[in-house]
């Protein structure tokens, strides 16, 4: 479809290598932390832009976040997205996935789309929740964790790896598809495009603009507290004869690390 309107849902997250530290109040310290587009979302952005380049169409990105997200939105715009939509209200600072999904679904009524792409999960909360809820709210079909995507006419053909094997799925548009690693290798934006991105439009909506109110948004989950695991302190060296060491290692992998 030459005029395919692709909407990509993106979330700004910490870089994946960021060290997570808690302050005295048990909140995550964000001082000195670099923000990026959540990597799976970035695969989605890249795929969308590749489709835009191959067959025309237009890529918009949508995020829920404060003006601190502007920098990462600019990255998506520099990669080639045509415009960005940002929804924000201070009450969303602590929004859970359900509220985020509600806000996105409401905002999507203001943005035309034929295809919705998102990352399979955000790398911070890893909940796999928002795209599924958005699909449910808007009555759209959903396919998670796709590794390839092609559109012909009004049908998308996707592939994905599941525990059962490699599935090929056909789904009519509009649909919500989420990206797995491998869908597309995100490009490194070129400098002229970085410059141009500074001038691309970023539409900002408040809750009122999309027909919602803070009072109507009820949380589903409450975070009671955060903790961080004890830092790795080098390997526990398992001694003894090879027989003893191997037995002990397997026991600890099974009972302590729970990886067997």
């Amino acid at each position: 479809m030459a005029d395919l309107k692709i909407l990509v849902l993106v979330k700004q997250t910490f870089t994946t290598e960021a060290r997570i530290q808690l302050d005295a109040q048990g909140k995550i310290v964000d001082k000195g932390i670099k923000y990026v587009i959540s990597p799976y979302d970035e695969y989605a952005v890249e795929k969308a832009i590749q489709m835009q380049e191959a067959g025309g169409g237009i890529v918009r990105i949508l995020t829920v976040g404060s003006d601190k997200t502007l920098e990462t939105m600019r990255i998506a715009l520099a990669m080639g997205a045509a415009e960005a939509v940002r929804v924000w209200d201070p009450c969303l600072e602590t929004a859970d996935s359900q509220i985020t999904a509600q806000v996105i679904a409401a905002a999507m009524k203001k943005v035309p789309f034929d295809l919705v792409l998102a990352g399979k999960a955000a790398v911070d909360d890893q909940s796999y929740e928002v795209p599924a809820r958005v699909a449910g709210l808007l009555g759209l079909p959903l396919v998670n964790a796709i590794t390839s995507l092609s559109v012909s006419g009004t049908t998308a053909k996707v592939e994905r790896e599941t525990d059962a094997g490699k599935e090929t799925i056909e789904v009519p548009l509009p649909a919500v598809l989420t990206a797995e690693k491998g869908l597309a290798e995100p490009r490194y934006p070129t400098l002229p495009n970085i410059m141009k991105a500074k001038k691309k439009p970023v539409q900002v909506y408040g809750l009122g603009d999309i027909g919602l109110s803070a009072a109507a948004l009820k949380p589903a989950v409450q975070v009671l507290g955060l903790s961080t695991p004890a830092p790795r302190k080098g390997a526990a060296i398992i001694g003894g004869s090879p027989q003893e060491a191997v037995k002990e290692l397997v026991r600890r992998l099974k009972e302590e690390a729970k990886v067997l």
Binding site: T15, E17, G32
Partner: peptide, 14 residues
């Protein structure tokens, strides 16, 4: 990695 962690390996800058 240099951009995000200020080192080429991407090890946490802090």
């Amino acid at each position: 990695n240099m951009e995000n962690a200020s080192n080429p390996w991407g090890i946490d800058a802090s």
